[in-house]
Design a protein around this nucleic acid. Structure first.
Lengths: 208, 208
DNA sequence: TATTTTAACTAATTTAATTAGTTTTGTCAA
DNA sequence: TTGACAAAACTAATTAAATTAGTTAAAATA
């Protein structure tokens, strides 16, 4: 009966730790309550449901990750900024597998407020606007990067990659591929600034 | 009590349909049994557990997708083959959201037999070996493509992308980015055939 | 201090997976 | 053809976890 002085923060941290140790799937109210030193039903004073807790965990993860990215980008620009942002995400995912899983699984389906990854979007847009990439294409670029980085992190987490070949090299290579892609966009944009997103700028042996 | 003449095939198809309608998370033995016209416990004559069923569904998905890719690649080569393979995966994911989710979530953790995506790997290796990409780098390339395509499909499924900007254009752009990346590898390989996977071929405004 | 709200508790309910034990149905060899 | 056996269905019971109901103690505030 003594009060535990819990707040959203402590609960999400405990939930995150549990998710990292056990995986989101196995994150249960029982386990969480035990870790917090209360009985399961007491959790309902703080949390609406297990599903909602997982969702909150996702939002919490995006916030934390957003902070880390912001920090890492202070005073950095250009390609190097992109590399760093990608690396921070990758490291975060490696460090917080459970939380990251929540971030990838749950997304703003039932769209309550803003998208949880909005903050990340803002960062990427800022990076793009400092370059020769049109507003319209920045949207595409953001999607492409998110897909790659999140996809890679998930596959790595699930051990989908054979352990012999170093995983980090693969990740870096992909980032370089995508950065090169941006450069191609910029070149095309400088040549004829009216472009959509569509097909490649010709002359690369396409339609082979 | 009449026998339903079920086999693995029918059960996985029903499970897949349910997963697509409800999501893997909500795929339950109750629902599956109801759909098959039997009582839940009877399922245990065919299936070891719910978790195992989901895993089998994953394997089934990879097989099906593998077939579709093989079909799509008959008589096609080069960049166009890569484009088609990516598109087939993307379409498959759009058509079978639940099964695809299973394919992405569950991976060969507890490594029973071969990796479920091995078939896909074989296809990509064949594509690479027909090009100027070294065996070693083919591994990286495979990982990069898988990450991007699976990541994109997952994010799209989770409606993580704003609906205004056409999603397909983003996907295609990313594919072109990656194809361009392969071309860069090939160029580098032709220039100095001893390369690892690491950093970019210089002269692109790095370390800015 | 009195009142109200918050956060804990116990007890009960619900839902779903799973197990135990039984019966039916089909197959196959004597 | 028939009788035994295996496979596949069933009912009934168990277990585990989320959730709800109703109660009480602690803290905050008027």
């Amino acid at each position: 009966m003594p009060r535990m002085n819990l707040d959203k923060r402590k609960i999400l941290e405990a939930a995150g730790a549990l998710a990292n140790e056990l995986s989101v799937k196995k994150l249960s109210l029982n386990a969480l309550a035990a870790r917090l030193g209360i009985k399961p039903p007491s959790l309902y004073n703080h949390v609406e449901s297990l599903d909602r807790l997982r969702r909150d965990l996702m939002a919490y993860g995006w916030e934390t990750l957003g902070d880390e990215i912001s920090d890492a980008l202070i005073g950095v620009s250009g390609d190097e900024a992109i590399r760093r942002a990608c690396n921070v995400i990758y490291d975060y995912a490696a460090r917080n597998p459970g939380v990251f899983e929540a971030m990838a699984y749950y997304n703003s389906d039932d769209g309550e407020g803003d998208s949880p990854a909005d903050r990340l979007s803002a960062i990427v847009y800022r990076l793009c606007s400092a370059r020769d990439v049109s507003e319209a294409q920045a949207v595409h670029v953001l999607r492409v990067f998110r897909s790659y980085v999140e996809g890679f992190a998930l596959l790595a987490k699930h051990r989908s990659f054979s352990r012999d070949v170093p995983v980090r090299e693969s990740f870096d290579l992909g980032v370089e591929f995508l950065i090169a892609g941006i450069h191609r966009l910029e070149d095309a944009h400088r040549a004829q600034p009216e472009n959509g997103a569509g097909k490649p700028p010709e002359g690369s042996g396409n339609h082979a």
